[in-house]
Write a protein that binds this DNA or RNA. Structure first.
Length: 324
DNA sequence: GTGTACACGAGCAAGGCGAC
DNA sequence: GTCGCCTTGCTCGTGTACAC
């Protein structure tokens, strides 16, 4: 399914803004979570959102959402400035819709696992919404994107982003038979396999082979199957991967067989990890009182893990050198 | 309880092939 | 040439067993 013109235009509008690019990739591949309703709290009379979050022992901070642009209303429909005037369940405007980030925690989970998952989803939603609203990114989350289309859309977005970010004359090709790569032609063991994405400079030199993986599993063998002939016959060509994997992001950066890996939103992964690792008896509100603190924690974590974004991928490709 | 490996399902895209 | 059917290869997601 080809990439829609509006999606292409969106990418082209924010090529120089890594955070907006993160928001566009995540927003256009949104994986709706059913746990978003957990963001609606039961409030006591004259109780603030902060007090309610402490009473409920939340793994997230309501201030993240309000800072991102969500407005809280009590059960009577009165906007919550400081305290609720009525008892009952509050709600958010716009409604909170989170992205499912952790497939390891089931929808039916309870206890600390559920607390961790909801906290992580709301943390990333807050960071995502803040970028979208502050930059006025015109993006509409799909209600339900078929899971079998998510990987293809991610790949198409990545191809278009690279095509527009790399110098004139460079090519970003995908689904190229490996036998079309010089050095792999006439090889007996290459077979009919195809490369995910190939980056070719203006001189026709193969700069890198890139694999796009919306999610990542250690047991998927397709990457390794491509790697064998590439590394054997073209060891001079770097092999990289771009992914949107959250729960295994640290493992991808540390253990994947590619030369380098890149993430669509490294800082948000770092924030997500920090929220996930919050102790069961610890307060998210006290640990990260505002969105800036949460964001900075994520950036620090991403740097520690050497998680790089797509902007770094573009720089790395551009710096391929010109000496054969 | 958590993480990992393995197997498998559902679905998409591309290409081969025969019938018309 | 075009259409429909089928196969192949790939993707992401899920279930289960097992080790720690």
């Amino acid at each position: 399914m080809p990439l829609e013109p509006t999606h292409k235009a969106l990418i082209e509008s924010y090529l120089e803004d890594p955070e907006a690019i993160s928001a566009i990739f995540l927003g256009l591949c949104w994986n709706e979570s059913i746990l978003a309703s957990e963001a609606r709290l039961d409030l006591h009379p004259n109780e603030s959102l902060s007090d309610a979050s402490l009473r409920h022992k939340l793994g997230w901070n309501p201030a993240w959402l309000t800072e991102a642009g969500f407005t809280a209303y009590d059960s009577a429909g009165t906007a919550l400035e400081e305290e609720s005037h009525t008892q009952g369940q509050m709600h958010w405007d716009p409604p909170v819709r989170t992205h499912r980030l952790d497939d390891k925690v089931k929808d039916t989970a309870t206890g600390h696992s559920k607390r961790r998952r909801i906290g992580g989803e709301i943390a990333v939603l807050s960071l995502w919404t803040h970028v979208v609203t502050s930059r006025n990114v015109s993006i509409e989350r799909p209600c339900k994107l078929d899971r079998n289309l998510r990987g293809a859309r991610f790949r198409d977005l990545l191809i278009h982003f690279l095509s527009k970010s790399l110098p004139t004359g460079w090519q970003v090709r995908h689904e190229v038979p490996l036998t079309h790569i010089r050095g792999l032609h006439m090889r007996r063991d290459v077979g009919d396999r195809k490369s995910d994405i190939l980056i070719i400079d203006e001189g026709g030199r193969l700069v890198a082979a890139l694999s796009s993986k919306w999610t990542w599993r250690s047991d998927r063998g397709t990457e390794a199957a491509q790697m064998v002939p590439l590394t054997r016959y073209r060891p001079d060509v770097p092999y990289a991967m771009a992914t949107a994997e959250f729960p295994r992001a640290a493992g991808v950066a540390r253990e994947s067989i590619e030369d380098r890996t890149y993430h669509i939103c490294p800082g948000w992964v770092g924030s997500w990890m920090a929220v996930n690792e919050l102790a069961a008896d610890a307060s998210a509100l006290a640990r990260w009182p505002d969105l800036a603190a949460l964001k900075q924690e994520g950036i620090n974590r991403a740097q520690t893990l050497a998680l790089n974004g797509l902007d770094v991928l573009v720089k790395d490709l551009r710096n391929s050198g010109d000496i054969l």
